[in-house]
Design a protein around this nucleic acid. Structure first.
Lengths: 150, 150
DNA sequence: TTCCTTGCAAACGATTTGCATTGGA
DNA sequence: TCCAATGCAAATCGTTTGCAAGGAA
């Protein structure tokens, strides 16, 4: 995505255009998967304090520009909302610490919805979200950006 | 479960019989769902430091007597392995902070296994676990032990 | 100019660890 | 007795917050 488009993303949500925000957005946009706050700082060419990244992410989350969730080791992970269609399920690699987005086919999503309905009905609960995560190991290491040679 | 049986659980795994361990086991055994370390301390009649509970839980985890996972707010949750048949999926209540174990029927489990196979194959990964969690809210509050009046 | 955002450092909350003491086998 | 387990306090780690300085509108 061009810088102009990232700027527009912020403007549309009424967020002021600042360098840390554009920075974080550009990094997330370049990534082929969710990134931790630490990842974001590492990928940044300019120096950004962790606290700023946390605040930027919080603002982007409020604006629903990003989505966040936790890694198995309880760190905050961030990804652009627009980069993931519909639901967000994840595949974690224990060895390279990478996180992949995975999509379930429509049939599977529907089955899951049914299960959720059954379970929530029987427990008398109003469900607002769900997650499905897969944990495994691969042979590759490190994190990859789209610009990297995969 | 009788104290004698809890003792036996430890003995079978080669763990020495200590009062904190029996305590934690008894509390987990009485609970109708996973408990946080803080919960365990609260439910204990005798005084147990958090650090001791963490160490006890770590030992019980090594011995596979308990299973652990994280709550949405990233706290460590613990439950007796034997109290949950087969797989472990969870229903989190945002309002009362309670966690329920849920079971999926065999057909659903099989579908999930298929999805996991597809996904792991396409990513070249060896899968060692997965989780399926539902987040919602109910009307009740607080944590319940089996001995409480539900 | 006027706030919102940032940077830096201190504060926090969950979990871990060092070390001297205690208690199980 | 002897070593593993415990209690207490200090340390860690990810994340949050207070406050003064900087920058967008």
């Amino acid at each position: 995505m061009a810088k102009k488009q990232l700027t527009e993303l912020l403007r549309q949500e009424g967020l002021s255009i600042t360098s840390p925000r554009l920075n974080v957005l550009a990094i997330l946009d370049q990534s082929d998967g969710p990134l931790s706050v630490e990842n974001i700082v590492e990928h940044s060419t300019t120096q950004i304090p962790l606290s700023t990244v946390y605040r930027v992410v919080a603002d982007l989350l409020d604006a629903k520009i990003v989505r966040t969730f936790s890694s198995p080791d309880k760190k905050l992970l961030v990804e652009l909302t627009r980069s993931t269609s519909g639901h967000h399920h994840h595949l974690y690699c224990q060895s390279c610490e990478k996180v992949f987005d995975i999509d379930l086919d429509t049939k599977m999503e529907r089955l899951i919805e049914n299960v959720i309905k059954d379970v929530s009905d029987s427990h008398g609960m109003r469900v607002y979200d769900h997650s499905f995560e897969i944990y495994g190991t691969c042979d590759r290491g490190g994190h990859h950006l789209k610009s990297d040679q995969d």
